[in-house]
Amino acid sequence: MRNVLLIASLALAAATGLAGCGSSAQPSTGSTGTNNAAAPTTPCKADDFKVTGEFGKAPKVEIPACKPTGELIIKDLVQGTGAEVKTGTTATVNYQLTTFSNKKVLDSSFERGEPFDVENVGKARVIDGWNEGIVGLKEKGRRLLVVPPAKGYGEGGNGIAPNETLVFVIDGVKVTPAA
């Protein structure tokens, strides 16, 4: 009985070891078992993100092959012509959220046809990236926000994975002055 257990244990260990080696049909890369695709080392800049589409319509966002930074990235894609979002105002916006890691649209008020009101900008009940990032947006303007985890959902929540970088395209629909 001991021999049967010993042989079974050796066979299991051998099978487990071979499973991680890959097939002989694949060329050897000298890898140590890590992903062969090199992780990007160049930090992302605003101009690395490509956004197409016109104001008022759902945008198409291309996530670049760069390394997300820990900084909030803000870039006006279309300069607005109306009132400007200031601390304390209410900003009515349309937005689209694309996650950096898997390049998927996670939420879009454009698709729902329902703009979103951000009341008391600067102290609104939204992520810090929005409280900071929409100040200065004007009505009829379109803005790109790339929000690092520390200014987004950090350890995750609301359907967002832990440490996710969030890519928003935000259209300024209306600005209402503080009461």
Rank of each mutant, 00 (worst) to 15 (best):
R2L: 15
R2T: 15
R2M: 15
V4D: 03
V4F: 14
L5M: 13
L5Y: 11
A8Q: 02
A8P: 01
S9V: 14
L10T: 08
A11I: 15
L12S: 12
A13P: 00
A15I: 14
T16P: 00
A19F: 15
G22N: 10
S23T: 11
S24D: 14
Q26I: 10
P27G: 08
S28D: 15
S28N: 14
T29P: 01
S31W: 09
G33W: 04
T34Q: 06
T34L: 01
T34G: 06
N35V: 02
N36A: 04
A38P: 05
A39E: 02
P40S: 00
P40V: 00
T41H: 00
T42C: 03
A46M: 11
K50V: 15
T52M: 05
G53F: 12
K57D: 09
A58Y: 02
P59R: 04
P59N: 05
K60T: 15
V61I: 15
I63N: 07
P64L: 13
A65Q: 13
A65D: 14
K67H: 00
K67P: 06
T69N: 09
E71M: 12
I73P: 02
K75M: 14
Q79P: 00
G80W: 02
G80L: 06
T81Y: 01
G82I: 04
K86N: 06
K86V: 06
K86H: 01
T87P: 02
G88I: 03
T89N: 11
T90I: 05
A91Q: 06
A91H: 09
A91M: 06
A91V: 04
A91Y: 09
T92F: 00
T92L: 11
V93F: 07
Y95P: 06
Y95C: 07
Q96L: 13
L97E: 09
F100T: 08
K103I: 09
K103W: 04
L106Y: 04
S108L: 12
E111T: 14
G113C: 10
G113Q: 09
G113Y: 12
P115S: 04
D117A: 14
D117G: 03
V118P: 06
N120S: 08
V121P: 08
G122N: 07
K123D: 12
I127A: 11
D128V: 13
G129N: 11
W130G: 00
W130N: 03
E132W: 12
V135F: 10
G136V: 01
G136H: 04
L137T: 12
E139P: 05
R143L: 07
R143S: 07
R143Q: 13
L144V: 11
L144Y: 12
L145K: 13
P149W: 03
A150T: 13
P162Q: 03
E164A: 12
E164F: 02
T165Q: 01
L166D: 05
L166V: 08
F168D: 04
F168H: 08
V169A: 06
V169I: 15
I170T: 08
I170L: 10
V173F: 07
K174Y: 10
K174D: 08
T176A: 08
A178M: 01
A179C: 00
A179I: 04
